[in-house]
Amino acid sequence: MVRDVTLGQYLPGNSLIHRMDARAKIVLLISFIVMIFCAFNFVSLALTAAVTILIVISSGIPLKMYLKSLKVIIFIVVITSVLNLFYGTGDPLWQWGFLKITWSGISRAIFVTIRIICLILATSALTFTTSPTNLTDALERLMKPLKVFHIKVHEIAMMMTIALRFIPTLLEETDKIMQAQKARGADMDSGNIIQRIKALIPVLIPLFVSSFRRAYELAMAMECRCYQGGEGRTKMKVLHMSAIDYIMIALMAVVLAGVIFCNIFFWELV
């Protein structure tokens, strides 16, 4: 079913990471991504991987869910690592025409694979443990300085909230419409590519129609509750940073320093 997509799904819970402030989590994720790409040798990469595993464990989300989100991108991982395998320089270990595999190619492939996996796991940890509302709320707060450039931060955040809110709804709706058309004998799983695209029309048209209807209804409902943009709007749930958040940020700084230190100290291990 279309609905079985785990990427970007929020799973309520009460783990350490669930309890952290969404802003702190976003900032930490960004610095973690920087860290992933700063890890130039196996020691610093191992450190990054270890941190990733710690994050995954302390999020209290079943490992199965992480595996599912990895499954979605397994294709990309395989392609990039295979490409990298052939891109190395140095003495070939194996050669066939212009294709050659070298030690540096292998180490690059391993690097890329671990990097992508860490990236996906860390990002999943954020989306699994943070509700979409908190996430966009946090983004709105973090982007506030951009107001100086007349960027409509609140409006952008509101659009994101609405978009995120409606992803599951639209998936559910797609599922329902597909079922209904299948019940009338629509054949979506066979035929060549043109036939398949044609078979989507009976699904896409009702989906568009109902999306527009929903958009009108939502706009109407928001107006009825006097929504008028971000001006003078207060929050019901104010985000607030607690001790955990500061401790985590400090830890992250230490680890980041560690990675840079490993890079310098073990530079010959690339």
Binding site: R184, P202, P206
Partner: peptide, 30 residues
């Protein structure tokens, strides 16, 4: 599915053709 016909909850959301006639003929055509 041709032997066991199914009308969903709120079936009006599955209409998609230009005319009612064409929409009704979607099933028989299939």
């Amino acid at each position: 599915r041709f032997q066991v016909g199914m009308v969903f909850q709120y079936p009006e959301y599955q209409l998609f053709e230009e005319t009612v006639y064409k929409d009704i003929s979607f099933g028989p055509k299939n």
